[in-house]
């Protein structure tokens, strides 16, 4: 039985040890894992396989029973193998990096995410940061096959200019080539 488990807590030493030890004690095997710390807050998303018969309630109860995990925000959902929603391999020809920058104000990510939803463009990954006084958003996106990139860039630029957001769209291979050996 495979579960996707999310964990969020204020960062401290030993969180990963606590969580993975608890999973091990439940007989679980880690299959995939992503973890980051943002401004002192730890978050982790993992996929683990458990012995047959391990249900969600039992898993939550077992994780909650571990003393050091008692005050963690924990989410558990059964893993569905088709849940990748058409996401292709990392080197997909249609995968682009959308960089956007604007004055630090509420609603910038929402505006771009809504625009992308309307165009049927999936966001694979997103990071943001304030850089030289501007709010910078970096979206890894999966375009629809056969998208006219020139037209998309143009319409995105026009749609976002009212909000003072400057957008650039470039194929991810450029970033890989200029940063990875």
């Amino acid at each position: 039985m495979n579960y996707v488990i999310s964990v969020m807590h204020k960062d401290r030493v030993g969180i990963i040890a606590d969580v993975t030890s608890a999973i091990k004690q439940l007989g679980g095997n880690l299959e995939d894992m992503s973890q980051t710390v943002m401004r002192g807050y730890f978050t982790m998303l993992l996929l683990a396989a458990f012995p047959d018969g391990t249900d969600e309630a039992a898993l939550r109860s077992a994780l909650g029973a571990v003393k050091d995990l008692a005050d963690f925000e924990i989410g558990i959902v059964p893993f569905e193998p088709d849940a990748n929603n058409g996401v292709k391999a990392d080197d997909s020809e249609d995968r682009y990096v959308l960089t956007a920058s604007g004055p630090d104000a509420p609603g910038l990510v929402a505006a771009i995410a809504e625009y992308l939803r309307q165009k049927g463009i999936n966001i694979i990954d997103l990071t943001t940061q304030v850089y030289h006084g501007r709010y910078i958003m970096m979206f890894l996106v999966q375009l629809q096959p056969q998208t006219d990139v020139g037209k998309l860039k143009h319409s995105l630029r026009i749609a976002m200019s009212d909000l003072g957001i400057h957008t650039e769209l470039r194929h991810q291979a450029l970033f890989k080539m200029t940063n990875e050996i």
């Binding site: 960089t99 990071t127 850089y131 890894l140 450029l174 970033f175």
Partner: peptide, 15 residues
């Protein structure tokens, strides 16, 4: 996802 500073660095090189 690549590191954000790598993305910003590449965009700055061009722009």
């Amino acid at each position: 996802m690549m590191q954000s500073n790598q993305i910003i660095g590449t965009v700055e090189m061009i722009q």
